[in-house]
Design a protein around this nucleic acid. Structure first.
Length: 417
RNA sequence: GUGAGUGUAGUUCAGCUGGUUAGAGCACCUGAUUGUGGUUCAGGGUGUCGGGGGUUCGAAUCCCCUCACUCACCCCA
């Protein structure tokens, strides 16, 4: 084989593509109910858009971005996530002048230069939603509820919704300090990764799965006890509204997000059926990002879901079989010509019709009909043309109905109306 | 970036300690059945054994290198 897809990239072919369409159509449908409108964003941005928002020291920026210089010597980056691009567009087009909340959704590929793994790709697709301009926790509850509805409408079950608050610019530094103070003198009892995390991102120590670390961190201060007045009451309201809307969820104070811009609410949806990369969707509030991008102080909240991680979860539960509504099997030259015309006419009347282009034995034509999943078959030979009448055979129950060669009648009979 | 595993037909895989012409299931094609499919029966192999080098009388098998893929860590949708 001479060429193949690059590492971590994949072709999406039928029948899988039907699952993608199902997910995308369901998302558009649900988003419409909630007043979200589509926004299409470029696939690359000035590198600063990401470094300034995601965080210079985050893993994404430090080692996972597809960054290169264009011919004008500008540093550009293939987007590793959608929110930064969205906020850039929000500010650039003064969208804040519209009545709040302004709600948008997007879908498309993201790029991260990572080692591929099960359900992790270098080009992966996200469907994301962002709601801007409302600080109230009702919006947080609403968007989490929407996500929950979306995922269950798509057909997912057994998902775990985890919610927490990670504080804001004011209280998070205090908490970080309290945590580091507590962990500082017992640092030697932690794994190598955690010792590194202590300086890089101490919050992540709370998420470590090494048994020794779980033991050693027992009794460490909890984020939720260190929230400032405002963050704390925001989180209380969120819990209240989630109860009110009956959105199933658990509180996980150790939930950590890898992006620097999150404030207050953070949430993640995971599945136990995905192996190690279990996150299906994740999101949170970002109340200071618009201002940092040069816009007026504007709160925002959003989430993104990974399509590749949803596909395997619905693969065996959704029927993706398809096939033409009619296959014409011609026998002889005259039938080939007549059938060719007929096929086009049926198509222009809205039917998915096909004709075998090679006149082989009827047996092999029928085999092919079966193989391609044709719902009905017409055998078109000299007799049928002479009589201007055909037999329409239903492939699933073998029932047969006769019809004249009139297009209207054919369509009617095939559709069984 | 780190660690482990796997590369043989379209696909899933067998091929043990080296031994004639590289195999099986599924899929595919043809026929039995001349104008009616799925079941059955008969026939058909579609292959650079990932690539290169080495050891040997002889390598899919052993050794080295390399490439690719997979899973996991880090991290994340």
């Amino acid at each position: 084989m001479k060429f193949k897809t690059l590492k971590g990239l994949q072709d999406i072919l039928p029948p899988d593509i039907s699952l993608w369409h199902h997910i995308e159509a369901t998302a558009r449908d649900i988003f419409k109910n909630y007043g979200y409108r589509e926004i299409r964003l470029p696939i690359m941005e000035s590198t600063d858009v990401f470094t300034r928002s995601i965080g210079e020291t985050s893993d994404i920026v430090e080692k996972e971005m597809y960054t290169f210089e264009d011919k004008g010597k500008r540093s550009v980056t293939l987007r590793p996530e959608g929110t930064a691009s969205f906020v850039r567009a929000y500010v650039e087009h003064h969208i804040h002048n519209n009545p709040a909340p302004q709600k948008f959704y997007y879908m498309g590929p993201m790029f991260r230069y990572e080692r591929p793994q099960a359900f992790r790709y270098r080009q992966f697709y996200q469907i994301g939603a962002e709601a801007m301009g409302v600080e109230d926790a009702k919006l947080d509850a609403e968007i989490i509820s929407m996500l929950s509805r979306l995922l269950s409408t798509i057909g997912l079950t057994g998902l775990n919704f985890e919610v927490t608050s990670i504080g804001c610019k004011d209280c998070r530094p205090d908490y970080k300090k309290a945590l580091k103070d507590y962990l500082g003198d017992k640092l030697k009892s932690f794994c190598g990764d955690c010792q590194r995390r202590y300086d890089a991102n101490p919050l992540r120590i709370l998420d470590c799965k090494v048994p020794g670390c779980i033991e050693s961190r027992k009794g460490s201060p909890a984020v939720l006890d260190h929230l400032c007045e405002e963050c704390s009451s925001h989180f209380d309201k969120l819990k209240h509204y989630l109860e009110l809307l009956k959105v199933p969820h658990t509180i996980n104070p150790n939930l950590v997000r890898g992006l620097d811009y999150y404030t207050k609410t953070a949430f993640e949806v995971s599945s136990e059926n995905l192996g190690s990369q279990s996150a299906v969707a994740a999101g949170g509030r970002y109340d200071s990002m618009v201002k940092e991008f040069g816009g007026p102080p504007t709160p925002g909240i959003g989430f993104a879901m990974g399509i590749e991680r949803i596909i395997p979860l619905i693969k065996n539960t959704i029927d993706v079989s398809d096939g033409p509504e009619l296959l014409i099997c011609p026998l002889g030259d005259e039938a080939t010509e007549k059938g060719f015309q007929l096929t086009e006419q049926l198509r222009s009347n809205g039917l998915w019709a096909e004709i075998n282009h090679e006149v082989t034995s009827l047996k092999s034509q029928m085999r092919k009909a079966n193989r391609i999943g044709a719902k009905n078959v017409i055998v078109l030979g000299d007799d049928e043309i002479k009589a201007a009448q055909v037999v329409i055979r239903n492939m699933s129950d073998k029932s047969e109905v006769t019809s004249t060669l009139s297009i209207d009648e054919l369509v009617k009979v095939i559709r069984r109306v």
